[in-house]
Design a protein around this nucleic acid. Sequence first.
DNA 1: AATACATATCTGGAAAGCAGGATATCATTT
DNA 2: AAATGATATCCTGCTTTCCAGATATGTATT
Lengths: 114, 114
Amino acid sequence: MYSGVLAPVDRAAAARFFRVLGDPTRLHILELLEEGELAVGALVAAVGQPQPRVSTHLACLRHCGFVRAERRGKEIVYSLALRGLDRIAEHADSTLEPIAERLATCTRIGPEWV
Amino acid sequence: MYSGVLAPVDRAAAARFFRVLGDPTRLHILELLEEGELAVGALVAAVGQPQPRVSTHLACLRHCGFVRAERRGKEIVYSLALRGLDRIAEHADSTLEPIAERLATCTRIGPEWV
DNA sequence: AATACATATCTGGAAAGCAGGATATCATTT
DNA sequence: AAATGATATCCTGCTTTCCAGATATGTATT
């Protein structure tokens, strides 16, 4: 159990954790890495987005400890550095299922939800 | 299993789902509602933040289907509308544990991670 | 009907995140 | 050492999100 002091800290960490997961491209990258390690080139090809963008998302995931990078010759190979992401994704999928449509149509978090 | 066509859609929905969870105040509100329904006034007092702010976050959670609002006399009582959030929070807590420090110090997602 | 209470919405402004493109870095090959 | 390939970082502008304060809406009370 947590002490009362630690709870808010954990909440901040948890919020950031979810926020990192809260981007389709990063989610896609993590999904791909679930299958096994991949070099940046392969990831770029798989997600179909410009290399600098993928690289930035990888930097985010790397700095936050979600993935690990290893230089292998000319390439840099990425792999997952965190266990349990697949389980969270599963639970999220089944949990959000009842509100999937709303989530899809709700394109912003602030006002003007129409 | 998903068809190849549905996967991207689900990814967008999942990303938004996580993004809604990716705010400390919203997370706090959801935690409080796990214990049972609460009126806005009680929520405002509990999270210790200005009423309009709490109200906006509630609107977000409501529009996305995370919570439900019911008018009861002068008050409006909120309750959870989604099952499984507690399980996701649990899994998230244990999953992010190895990188909790990084998440705490990593205050931005874009460049300038220092 | 007037007032008080509870909550929601609407402003404006600041900051964070994201996209696009150019460029820098590092390792390999010639 | 020069050139090439692979990846990372920098710069700029734009969009989204967040916050703070003021105001509006709706309900109950007098």
